[in-house]
Design a protein around this nucleic acid. Structure first.
Lengths: 230, 230
DNA sequence: ATAAAATTATGTTAAAAAACATACAAATGT
DNA sequence: ACATTTGTATGTTTTTTAACATAATTTTAT
């Protein structure tokens, strides 16, 4: 029995906080733990979900292959959170792929156990309804901003999104995730060249500071302004 | 008691098909019916949801105001379907607005009654989970196609989407919804000028035929090809 | 019935962003 | 230690699409 990922079930912020101790034990008995190295694929577009995947440690990007293989990141997962639950609950194959962007630990909860709990526990169902509804709102927002904002606005929004998702380091400025320029581009719907160029421009405007993959936000208000104006 | 919209609850395709007769009666007693004229606003971005809105008759567009007031249609609703349920279940204010594009009849189910049913009926919860998960998949797909496909690809996809959503007339070709060029543009993330121009191009290529707001699909395979290529 | 407004249509110009090219730096494998 | 690959950086060209302009047609209101 693998305790490495039981924090998923015990965590106060998790949707499983509505479960009682017996239910939590049942979940723990019917879940498995897997380790992934940075750049490992967790699942691919078209695969069939086998259970509910929870991210216990690490960071994961969820992305879709678009026109000409061009990648669009649709979500960034952090602990404690689910991965691939959309496909599972829609009873579809995955419509996106998941890749670890850091060494990660995931916990997979057996489908049957999950469904058993869902059928007896309306609070759990409601937690999942709330999660899906929130993410749908986020997705609709993204659709509009990625299509309507200009490059500077899109990049600024992505940086703010990364800061809100992963937080900042002790210096109260450096975004706590280290993405390649290509990933930043794929998150912001632009080419890698344009991501590099626009990051440089932001740096020359003293809005951010760059040190390799470290991005330090120097002027939060300025970044928010750029994001809002589009 | 308004029977005009009880088809929502009795319809076999509705998520309420999992309810028993008593539960259906409870819903009917706690729901109200409202009539809307074409172009009437049903709710606006920022409003607070008061209950679960179901479209019984008519057609409704769901749209967000983006950069500089530019409108993006995120969903097209048809009977029998829900409107604004995302915000209700996320316990948020509406993030989009709803407007009738035809004379419509809606049925609003009281929030308390709905929640009572949800707490006792896991099948209903599961139906809603499945609906939200499906729509989230659709939304993520849209994000990618609206950002990556070129104008022709986006317009072709929108026409196919409208055909799939509302079906076709008896002539087995005319899309069963009559939108302004502006609405088609707002659905496809382009300016009205470009929607008009590209529709004309499609017509000159004999892929579609135009007659006012009537759009007849002449070459479905061709349209699908344009949509897939982007 | 007629004016006003909204919608459709099409041509022209300007802006945005992709595509392309090249160079350099950093990481990785042998 | 060196070669190879991958990632970063920046300049130039081309494509796409928005913005603008104008006119014809249709719808709506009075």
């Amino acid at each position: 029995m693998n305790v490495e990922c039981h924090n998923i079930i015990d965590n106060q912020m998790s949707v499983f906080s509505v479960l009682n101790q017996d239910e939590k034990e049942l979940l723990k008995r019917n879940s498995t733990c897997t380790y992934y190295k940075k750049n490992d694929i967790i699942y691919k577009e078209g695969d069939k979900p086998s259970g509910l995947i929870c991210l216990s440690k690490g960071k994961v990007k969820i992305f879709k292959e678009g026109v000409g293989g061009r990648e669009q990141i649709v979500r960034m997962a952090k602990p404690v959170g689910f991965i691939g639950y959309r496909a599972l609950f829609a009873e579809q194959n995955y419509l996106a792929s998941a890749e670890a962007i850091e060494d990660s630990v995931i916990c997979t909860i057996e489908k049957e156990t999950l469904y058993k709990l869902l059928s007896t526990n309306s609070d759990l169902s409601f937690s999942i309804i709330r999660s899906l509804a929130s993410e749908l709102g986020f997705s609709n927002n993204r659709t509009v901003t990625l299509t309507q904002k200009h490059i500077r606005g899109r990049l600024a929004e992505s940086l703010l999104f990364l800061k809100d998702t992963y937080g900042i380091e002790e210096d109260i400025a450096t975004i706590k995730v280290y993405l390649s320029r290509e990933d930043i581009a794929n998150l912001s719907n632009m080419t890698t060249s344009n991501a590099i160029r626009t990051l440089s421009t932001f740096a020359s405007e003293k809005i951010i500071a760059l040190d390799g993959r470290k991005i330090k936000i120097l002027d939060l208000k300025g970044l928010e302004r750029i994001s809002e104006l589009g």
